[in-house]
Amino acid sequence: MDQFVVKKFFCTPEDASVVLNECTRNIHWYDITNVTVWMAVAVLVIAALLVLGTRRRAIVPSRSQSVAEMLYGFVYNMVEEVTGHEGVKYFPYVMTLFLFILFANLLGLLPLAFTTTSHLAVTVTLAMMVFLGVTILGFVKHGVGFLGMFWVTSAPLAIRPILALIEVISYFVRPVSHSIRLAGNLMAGHAVIKVIAGFATLAVASPVVIGAVTAIYGLELLVAVVQAYVFTILTCVYLRDAVGDNHH
Rank of each mutant, 00 (worst) to 15 (best):
Y171S: 10
P61E: 04
A228L: 00
A224Q: 04
T201F: 06
Y76H: 03
V5Q: 09
G87P: 05
S179L: 08
E220R: 13
F146V: 02
V134E: 14
S64I: 01
A121K: 11
T96W: 10
V51W: 12
V37K: 11
V195H: 06
V176P: 01
V243S: 10
F131C: 04
A183I: 07
R56E: 08
T153E: 11
L219V: 09
R55D: 05
K7R: 15
V192Y: 02
K7L: 13
F146D: 01
S179R: 10
I46V: 14
W29A: 15
M1D: 04
I193L: 15
K8F: 06
P61C: 09
T54D: 05
I27Q: 08
E220P: 00
M1C: 04
A68W: 06
V237M: 15
V226E: 01
V152L: 08
I180C: 01
T33Q: 08
F103P: 04
H178T: 01
V88M: 14
V37F: 12
E86K: 14
T116N: 06
V5Y: 05
L52C: 12
L234P: 00
T135N: 09
V124G: 06
I136Y: 12
D245E: 13
A47L: 13
M149F: 07
V124I: 15
L163C: 04
G84H: 10
H119E: 14
P207D: 07
A42H: 04
I136F: 14
S179P: 09
L109M: 15
A191C: 05
P161Y: 06
G145D: 13
T235I: 02
V192K: 11
V173Q: 14
T36W: 13
T214I: 01
G184L: 04
N21W: 10
A215N: 00
L97F: 14
V67S: 00
T117L: 04
K7N: 12
I27T: 07
S62G: 15
G53F: 07
